[in-house]
Simulated assay, not measured.
Amino acid sequence: MAARTGIAPGWRRAGGAALLLAALGTATAHAAPDAGLTVEYYDVQGTTLPQLRASLSALGPVDDDGERHHGQVNWNLQWRYNYSTDRGGCRLTGFAVQRSTTMQLPRWVDVDRASPALRSEWERYSQALRLHEDGHVETGALAAAEIERRAAAVKRSSTCAALGTTLDGIGKAVVQEFKARDVEYDATTGHGATQGAQI
């Protein structure tokens, strides 16, 4: 029996909008918590709303297009498969996808010096931003499950090289499909603005 590993290219999507837009209350479904989720924070400053907005705009994470947002999620998928040879060629004996996800969120360092009204607004905004970013985490979870679902239909191939090519093709195709879902999610929600992720 032998084993191989396939790695999907890193993928990240960003969220959080500075524009004041009406909240439409978008409902989303959520997968089980991601055991591979790491949350990182960047510090923002200010004791007034304009100062806080300016800090978020200046310090938020940068996406692949060079644009800053208030939050960002990077999910990465790695698949590993086992196989064995027999008279019929190469048979798949095991397949699993490992998911690792990093979420970047703002941390307000001047919260104790701000007004109660601004602290309340920050709490509301932070929860909405986390809700939006959790949607990107969900996309990565669904992508991992879809790779496993499609790989389950692959039983064997004429050669082990062909088996590996088929499985890697499945993984890469699914990653591209779910990259597109992340882009659509941001477009639909205005990077979280319709979910209340604006301040």
Rank of each mutant, 00 (worst) to 15 (best):
Y83W: 06
Q45H: 15
R68D: 00
D63H: 05
T139G: 13
A114M: 05
T28V: 12
S158K: 11
G6A: 13
H132P: 07
P61D: 04
W11S: 11
V97F: 02
A193G: 05
T102H: 06
S55C: 00
G46E: 09
A151M: 01
L19R: 14
D110L: 00
D65P: 10
I170W: 03
A162R: 12
Q51H: 03
V183R: 09
G25Y: 07
A58G: 08
V183K: 10
T166R: 12
A193S: 11
Y41Q: 15
D110A: 03
V39M: 03
L37P: 01
A144I: 04
E40R: 15
R156Q: 12
L21Q: 15
E148P: 08
T189A: 03
G192P: 06
D134W: 03
K155T: 13
A18S: 12
A32N: 10
R156L: 11
A144H: 01
S158R: 11
K179D: 13
H132I: 02
T102Y: 06
D112H: 09
D182P: 04
L37M: 01
L56C: 02
R68N: 00
T101I: 05
S84W: 13
T165Q: 15
R80F: 03
G88K: 10
R13V: 14
S157A: 13
Q104I: 07
M103S: 04
G164W: 09
A18P: 14
S157N: 08
G164K: 15
A35G: 14
R4S: 09
A23H: 10
I199F: 15
A143D: 04
G192W: 03
K155Q: 14
T48S: 09
E123C: 09
G46W: 10
